[in-house]
């Protein structure tokens, strides 16, 4: 019962959010006749807009940054959220525009491709690593290994991308040096090839996170009942059999929960790393939803269409939300574990 109530509230929120954002997705239009709010509201709204316009222009004057931030006051293109009298209701036109765009399929396929590849490549590593660490005999060596493998987790995304670019540079980098030493030829530029983007992205992610990801599994492995291990040993199970039949089953609920969390993130690939690794040559595989949203809005300069970008972002959020609810239900059914 309680769960139904919660779901009802969730449904209410989704509808509410949808209404709100479809309001703000409406385009700017010169005619003011479609919406006529009360006079007081209108005046306060326009005052506010003017103020923020001034503030925005001031910022541009005092701080002409190098970053591609919009150069015109964006308040005018936003719509109902800032100024109710400017934007007419356009319904779901922005969503339709996105669904018809050729980038619709491409961004979605790229997003799913990146996250599925990351999931498949990255998911087993922490588990195997934790099981291996757990069966190490030398405690000090184990500590040292942990210290080293947790390290990349603390490297920032920008530095990580910097490291990738230095190490895989085809002339001065490690990659270039080694290939040249082995084959005698200068290797091709990896950053100019679209497909290598995917591999670099995914495997650098695995490099960064497998050690850190193993902490959780290691913690769960401390719950293994030592009596079981002892009994198995007496019954003649070797170390490998004990790992497979005793250690691994203890991890299974945690693995399911982690898998759910990752599946819920299927459509949300982090903006930062993709954006940093993007260049014109790999755009075909590296343009994902979040970078597209950025380019349509804040990074779009004078061509920015905030309503359109918001619609895409909302579409993405809704899908993420539905996904996490679905996988959670599935987990409840199959694994008897869930997030809430």
């Amino acid at each position: 019962m309680a769960r139904n109530k919660k779901l009802n509230i969730l449904a209410f929120f989704i509808i509410f959010a949808l209404i709100l954002v479809s309001c703000s997705t409406s385009k700017q239009n010169s005619s003011n006749t479609t919406n006529q709010p009360s006079a007081t509201q209108e005046t306060s709204g326009s005052e506010k807009t003017n103020e923020s316009n001034v503030a925005w222009e001031d910022q541009n004057v005092t701080a002409p940054g190098q970053l591609p931030i919009v150069k015109e006051p964006i308040t005018l293109t936003i719509g109902i959220a800032s100024n109710p009298s400017v934007s007419p209701w356009i319904g779901l036109a922005n969503f339709q525009k996105f669904f018809k765009s050729y980038l619709f399929k491409r961004t979605i396929v790229n997003t799913i491709r990146i996250s599925l590849y990351s999931l498949i490549a990255g998911f087993p590593f922490p588990i195997i690593f934790a099981l291996a660490l757990n069966s190490m005999v030398h405690a000090r060596l184990k500590k040292a290994v942990q210290l080293i493998t947790y390290m990349p987790h603390f490297i920032s995304t920008v530095v990580l991308v910097g490291i990738i670019m230095q190490v895989f540079h085809n002339t001065i980098g490690l990659y270039g040096t080694i290939v040249k030493a082995l084959t005698g030829q200068k290797p091709p530029d990896l950053f100019a090839k679209a497909n290598s983007f995917l591999h670099l992205y995914v495997w650098s992610g695995v490099w960064k996170s497998f050690g850190w990801g193993s902490i959780l599994y290691l913690a769960v492995l401390t719950n293994v009942n030592p009596e079981l291990l002892e009994a198995a040993e007496i019954d003649g199970a070797n170390r490998f059999q004990r790992v497979i039949h005793i250690d691994f089953p203890v991890l299974v609920p945690t693995i399911i929960i982690q898998f759910i969390l990752r599946m819920g993130d299927l459509m949300s690939v982090g903006f930062e790393k993709v954006f940093l690794m993007q260049n014109d040559l790999n755009l075909r595989v590296s343009e994902i939803i979040s970078t597209y949203v950025y380019k349509q809005s804040i990074g779009g300069g004078s061509a920015a269409d905030y309503g359109y970008a918001t619609a895409i972002g909302l579409f993405n959020s809704v899908i993420n939300f539905v996904l996490i609810i679905l996988v959670n239900k599935a987990a409840k059914k199959f694994g008897e574990t869930s997030l809430w």
């Binding site: 959010a17 910022q59 972002g313």
Partner: peptide, 27 residues
């Protein structure tokens, strides 16, 4: 619920940007 809901669902980049702008937090 209000808090944890934001972990599962959010408006995205632009609405957040607008909120920050209207809070006068930009720059």
């Amino acid at each position: 619920f209000l808090f944890s809901f934001t972990m599962l669902f959010n408006g995205g980049m632009i609405p957040t940007y607008l909120v920050m702008r209207d809070l006068r937090l930009l720059n």
